[in-house]
Nucleic acid binder design. Sequence first.
RNA 1: GGAGAGUUGGCCGAGUGGUCGAAGGCGCACGCCUGGAAAGUGUGUAUACCUCUCAAGGGUAUCGAGGGUUCGAAUCCCUCACUCUCCGCCA
Length: 424
Amino acid sequence: MITTTRIKEEFDLILLGLQKRGLDLRSELEEILEQDDVRKRTQKELDDTLHEARILSKEIGGLFKAGKKEEAEQAKSRTSALKAQEKVLHQKLAETEEALTEKLRHIPNVPHESVPKGTSESDNVETERWGEAEGSGEQHKPHWELAKTYGLIDFEAGVKITGAGFPVYTGKGAILQRALINFFLDRNVAAGYQEVLPPHFVNEDSAYGTGQLPDKEGQMYHITADDLYCIPTAEVPVTNLYRGDILKEEDLPKRNTAYTPCFRREAGSYGKDVRGLNRLHQFDKVEVVVVEHPDRSYERLDRMVEHIGGLIKELEIPHRILRLCGGDLGFTSALTYDFEVWSRAQERWLEVSSVSNFESFQSNRLKLRYRPSDGGKPQLCHTLNGSALALPRILAALLENNQTESGIVVPKVLQPYTHFDLIQ
RNA sequence: GGAGAGUUGGCCGAGUGGUCGAAGGCGCACGCCUGGAAAGUGUGUAUACCUCUCAAGGGUAUCGAGGGUUCGAAUCCCUCACUCUCCGCCA
């Protein structure tokens, strides 16, 4: 959520930034400022009323003590008008505040200056490409065929026991999953991230904290009996670790990594998008989540991109990095890099990671702040996160790219984890 | 799941209707003392919003959360959440 202070101070800049998303929100922003003025006036009125009532009740107390009962009773009658006024103002304030946040919620984050203008995927800017991609796919089998041939994934069994989009990994397929998870976690820990193993369900407050609620309600599995939500990404529980916190400036950055399964309803998806491992309801992912000082968040983003790129290189998978354009940028992000691996058989790019700087957009909603070392007022932190990495599409690319006459070759870096180097 | 006890500031802990944003202690910060330190001693030590907007000052709210009683609630009542103890169940 963007702050009203910022809207007031950087009105034109914000307007300009949002244009990169193809949005003209001038009137919405103006309405917010007007609403904020109403809020302030109401608050002042309410505070004054309460102040008056407070003084009066102190007087009454004094009168009772002094034994002046009649005068006290008289004073009492004067409070009833104040009480009525107080009630009205209180309600008005609550309504105004609610309307204000409701409006504020619909303003997306302001894109960073480096975000290219654009309306769709095609306007994303490729910043890096690694390995041999494009073409050469004719004699390659798609991963769902390979998975079946080598007994790595049983999609039908998943359908039987749960439903479509819930694959069962079997044998070397299951071991490969475990190997990838451990490989990613080990590398992240070596890079300085603290490993955490969070709950896979979160409460409503947490879902609000990272912005899944109220807008993306339909994307999450909801356990109604206990009012809990299955996490769509580890970002939700890990970021909420810091909800409402005031950190010490010297404790920044906070860097965490977590493996969790991710649950997504993916309502409305169909066709080739959901074939095989392309899109699932349950999948495994290792995530990195960072809370950083505002002055250093972009430097941090660059390092995260470098680290995640390094992981894919180690796995020797052809990939590219895209800087997302305004139109493709997520609602909460100020700058996002997408990592895509090459699916040789499908001859298309598959997104395996999305690394973003949310600046203070998330922390404003989370009330996540740090106290400056010089003792000044608490300031909002910046938050960043990225997948490092999402397993299914990595596995898909791995199977398709590494298929040979004799079987599927396991990348060298995974062999210490799998204890086999070939899938036959 | 049943019964009981509890939840107060960074931490411990007092406070059962008024002058309580809250005693006392610890911790922390700054000063004094000291050659330096410890001890001692003095001062300060929450957050949000409003006013002001440079600062200072002032106002309001917050004693687990929400609602109620009352002129007035940390204190009384109701609902919920969480923690602990005992019983039950259990990987």
